[in-house]
Design a protein around this nucleic acid. Structure first.
Length: 939
DNA sequence: GCCCTCACG
DNA sequence: GACGTACGTGAGGGCT
């Protein structure tokens, strides 16, 4: 049956079930718009297949391909061992209806789709692989399933579809400790809890590999089991010989299935555009449909109509749900005179809602110039108001003259101002803080506001990012015009003012329309998902507060930094000379790769560990260990690195961020950057200014108050532990916080039974590490590494800790169980954080579990300081003071010298009471304060 | 553009 | 029994 397939042919076998589960877990629970049918797995599956088809390249291009699926749960293995795969949970409810659709999808892509009653996909893959190999062809199995690794070798290899890396005999050996041909023997001994393969009790992969290495193969091992030296191991093998043989039959794949089709029939065929587009359109996968249509150069078919959204789900701010027509850029208007602008403003005032987007000459909203404003009042109703375009980049310099057909900027802004400040007109933006600041620089303080980025964040933090292109693709199935198409990239990049006005109109108006549509889609979902309060109280009000802080900026002493830079340069040069001397020759100290080779090859030091890329690890931990062994060079490198970091990231870089107009540094806060509700600070990041070392703290001296002013810093004391005490309801911890005693010393005292008085500092240090570890989802391994103690010791600390504070374990279990059931966790204040991957199995789930445990704690702390920040402007309005910075649990203010005490009193009151009245915490919030001429003094 | 390393809470 | 492991960020430099 294999005629026609042979030498020179290359068969790809795709593990369909693996694709489906990956797709299901990787994507948010998308549904088909017209009828709400779950569609996440189908969408992901189709995207993966399409990407696979597009990515094929060069000599690895397959000539034949098939997707193989499991047919039913019951297979011939259940006749051998009834409990086989009995542990396996049922697939999730919303995944089941998607299984048949993935088969349909495969056929729509015109790829052979194979499944056979009574056989697992793995057996079909094995049989096909063997036949193809025997016929002289090449085989690649697209899967990372370890059960398939026994097939590798002799012309068969695997490819991990996610990492894009081949899995050959070496990778198999790394995983199992033996070559592919002995994998089944190891698996038979080690068993598999997921598939419920019993194996030999007490023997894992490591031990199994060792035994097989020693005895050659499983049968020999079992026959000579009497010779095994370790008594327990010997007895296990003798007692369970039969069970091990059964396990072997369970894990060994069946290569001899009779197939009712020829390999030749798997030859690759181009998809038939019509059938494929028809299928994708029926699934309503808008974005992919469009992409596929583009690729085939045909028209994308129209999608089904949407069913009306039920009123209860839609909520008060909802617009009646009707299916919107597709985005049509040809409808856009360019506003070139007062009369047309006046018409648009009248329409906006009448509708009471407008989506707005500003176009500028750059990404820095403190320095870029306003180039235009786009407005959208509904589907197909969008306009662009060009204000600062110049005559283009036709030649190298352009004429630089103002382009014709634009309104005068100040006149247009004067007309816009009343509408943008009208409390009866809602302004919608995507990341509207940017536009708010651009307009604020022209005297317009926009209000009220909605932000589609923040709507998405309130609904789906943790599930995906919230940039416009991503949201448009995800929720509208629309691909936005890439900005690169207008301004290019790299060296040849121009700025938006140089883009021709008609092209700019299309792009800019589209952005406004996409924003309007996203709002129309997302806003009604707040209430149904119970995140309306989180959005209203924790997200929306941050825009104006942060915009004001960013515009205020902070003064820095550039001279101080420059002096530090040159001192650092000298020290680095001296260290570098020493290092080269010790190394026996020059090399780039800043290159971990070169350093690794010097240390572990040239100098032959032990302890070199190579990572995935084959590079030696030279992190601080490794170097510290080497230094402790008495080697000189690693210590010098650590010193060099510490200085190099301070110099390049801080003392060199910060002066470059001083705004020439204000003479101050203006960071930009991302509201929707972190998954937990924390802010992130960029350009420059002012949330990681050094503080832990003496030398680092000197950098804080460069952050100074303006003349006659002082910097004041207020920070929450132990806020995350206090939140833990409250949410996990830990009596001992709560009492300690109420009594105001040293929390780490109290923990140590409870755990080790020593009095707080005269406690050994190292005992307290350990308790502190555990307290923090708990917040992060502690593990024995992590604690051991942190404290540099044996793992067993660390584990016993943790055990003791959980014994003393059993409520913590209960909290962790409760949180993880909730995440598994709901797909998200919540903070005390109702912020929702999605937990994708929590239901995965294997090591990947560990990280998701820890993130789920941490998110409500870190998130609640973030909520509390947000609440304080939102109330702060009103609370300090009467004082000559401004809020400048936020560093997660710290707020930095600039205040006139004479009002320091008053400011501290007012700000502390707001911060300590920030949870009220939404949440009545069982523990007090305490805020420490400091002040001085610079940030180092204030801290 | 990715990886490594390291600064912060 | 063994796996891989602290949570959350952003920036700079090396290297492909």
């Amino acid at each position: 049956m294999t005629d026609g397939f042979g030498k020179g042919h290359h068969l790809h076998l795709i593990d369909g079930s693996a694709f489906i589960f990956r797709a299901y877990h990787a994507l948010p629970p998308l549904t088909r718009r017209s009828d709400g049918l779950p569609m996440g797995a189908v969408a992901g599956f189709c995207n993966m297949v399409w990407k696979y088809l597009q990515d094929g390249k060069g000599s690895d291009q397959p000539t034949h391909a098939a997707v193989i699926f499991d047919h039913s749960a019951r297979t011939f293995r259940n006749d051998i061992y009834p409990l086989y795969k009995a542990n396996r949970p049922e697939p999730p409810e919303d995944l089941r209806p998607q299984f048949p659709l993935t088969r349909e999808a495969t056929r729509a892509f015109n790829i052979a789709c194979i499944e056979t009653e009574g056989f697992e996909a793995d057996d079909i893959i094995a049989s096909l692989a063997c036949q193809a190999r025997d016929a002289g062809g090449r085989v690649t199995i697209i899967s990372s399933d370890k059960d398939l690794m026994q097939l590798v070798g002799g012309g068969v290899e695997m490819m991990d579809p996610i990492k894009g890396k081949p899995i050959g005999p070496d990778e198999v050996r790394e995983k199992f400790g033996v070559g592919p041909e002995r994998v089944v023997d190891v698996q038979a001994l080690a068993g598999d809890s997921i598939d419920n393969v019993p194996g030999a009790p007490g023997i894992g992969i490591k031990t199994a590999a060792q035994l097989i290495e020693e005895y050659g193969d499983l049968e020999t091992l079992l026959a000579r089991a009497e010779e095994i030296r370790q008594p327990k191991r010997r007895q296990t093998l003798i007692d369970h010989a039969e069970q091990i043989r059964i396990s072997r039959r369970l894990v060994e794949l069946d290569c001899r299935m009779a197939l009712d089709f020829s390999l030749e029939s798997l030859e690759i065929r181009e998809p038939e555009p019509e059938a494929l587009l028809d299928f994708l359109a029926r699934m309503e996968l808008r974005s992919l449909t469009k992409r596929v249509a583009e690729r085939f150069g045909t028209e994308a078919p129209t999608m089904a109509e949407a069913a009306p959204v039920p009123a209860a789900v839609a909520g008060p701010a909802a617009v009646p749900a009707v299916e919107l027509p597709a985005i049509d850029r040809s409808l856009y208007v360019t506003i070139r005179d007062e009369a047309v602008l006046a018409e648009w403003l009248a329409e906006i005032a009448e509708k009471g809602v407008v989506a707005i987007d500003t176009e500028t000459t750059g990404l820095d909203d403190m320095q870029a110039e306003l180039v235009g404003v786009s407005l959208c009042t509904g589907p197909g109703r969008a306009a662009y108001l060009p204000l600062g375009h110049v005559d283009g980049a036709a030649d190298l310099f352009g004429s630089g003259a103002r382009a014709a057909g634009q309104m005068e900027r100040e006149r247009a802004l004067a007309m816009l101002k009343p509408v943008l400040e009208d409390p009866a007109v809602l302004k919608i933006g995507q990341n509207i803080k940017y536009d708010w600041k651009m307009l604020a620089r022209h005297g317009i303080r926009m209000a009220p506001l909605d932000d589609t980025m923040l709507l998405s964040y309130a609904l789906n933090a943790g599930a995906h990012n919230h940039g416009m292109d991503e949201l448009a693709d995800l929720y509208l199935g629309h691909r936005c015009l890439p900005i690169k198409d207008l301004i290019g990239s790299g060296k040849a990049q121009i700025n938006f003012s140089q883009v021709a006005i008609d092209k700019a109109s299309e792009y800019a108006a589209e952005d406004a329309e996409v924003t309007w549509r996203l709002w129309h889609h997302l806003r009604p979902r707040l209430a149904a998902n119970h995140v309306a309060t989180a959005y209203e109280r924790l997200e929306r009000p941050m825009v104006a507060v942060l915009a004001d802080m960013e515009m205020a900026g902070i003064r820095i002493d550039s001279d101080h930094l420059r002096r530090m830079s040159s001192a650092f340069a000298q020290k680095m040069a001296a260290l570098e000379a020493e290092i080269h001397e010790l190394a026996g020759g020059p090399f780039n100290v800043g290159s971990p790769k070169q350093l690794g080779e010097i240390l572990f090859q040239r100098m032959g030091l032990a302890g070199g560990k190579q990572g995935k890329t084959g590079a030696y690890s030279t992190g601080a931990e490794v170097l510290e260990d080497l230094a402790a062994e008495g080697h000189e060079l690693p210590g010098r490198v650590l010193d060099w690195r510490a200085i190099s970091k301070l110099k390049s990231t801080y003392t060199d870089a910060l002066p470059l961020h001083v705004n020439p107009e204000t003479g101050r540094v203006h960071t930009c806060y991302s509201i929707a950057g972190a998954q937990t509700g924390r802010l992130a600070s960029t350009d420059p990041n002012l949330q990681n200014i050094p503080v832990r070392t003496e030398e680092g703290r000197r950098i804080r001296e460069a952050f100074v108050a303006a003349p006659g002013m002082r910097l004041v810093s207020l920070d929450y004391s132990q806020i995350e532990l206090r939140i833990l005490a409250h949410v996990a309801q830990i009596p001992a911890l709560k009492q300690a916080f109420r009594d105001g005693i040293d929390i780490h010393a109290m923990t140590a005292s409870q755990m080790f039974g020593v009095p707080v008085e005269g406690m050994d500092p190292s005992v307290r240090r350990r308790a502190k590490a555990i307290n923090f570890g708990v917040i992060y989802g502690i593990s024995g391994f992590g604690l051991a590494r942190n404290l540099r103690i044996p793992r067993a010791e660390a584990q016993s600390f943790i055990d003791t800790y959980f014994e003393r504070f059993p409520e913590i374990r209960a909290y962790m279990d409760r949180t993880v169980a909730g995440a598994k059931q709901d797909g998200f966790v919540r903070t005390l204040f109702g912020r929702r954080i999605m937990t994708p991957g929590i239901n995965q199995s294997g090591p990947a789930a560990g990280g998701a579990r820890r993130a789920a445990i941490n998110a409500p704690i870190q998130g609640a702390a973030a909520d509390i300081i947000r609440r304080a920040m939102i109330r702060m402007p009103d609370a300090i309005r009467h004082l000559p003071a401004r809020m400048l910075l936020q560093v997660h649990d710290e707020l930095v203010f600039e205040v006139e010298e004479g009002a320091v005490a008053e400011l501290i009193e007012a700000a502390r009151g707001i911060m300590q009471g920030a949870a009220d009245p939404a949440v009545r915490l069982d523990v007090p919030l305490i805020v420490d304060a400091g002040h001085g001429l610079n940030w180092a003094q204030a801290h």
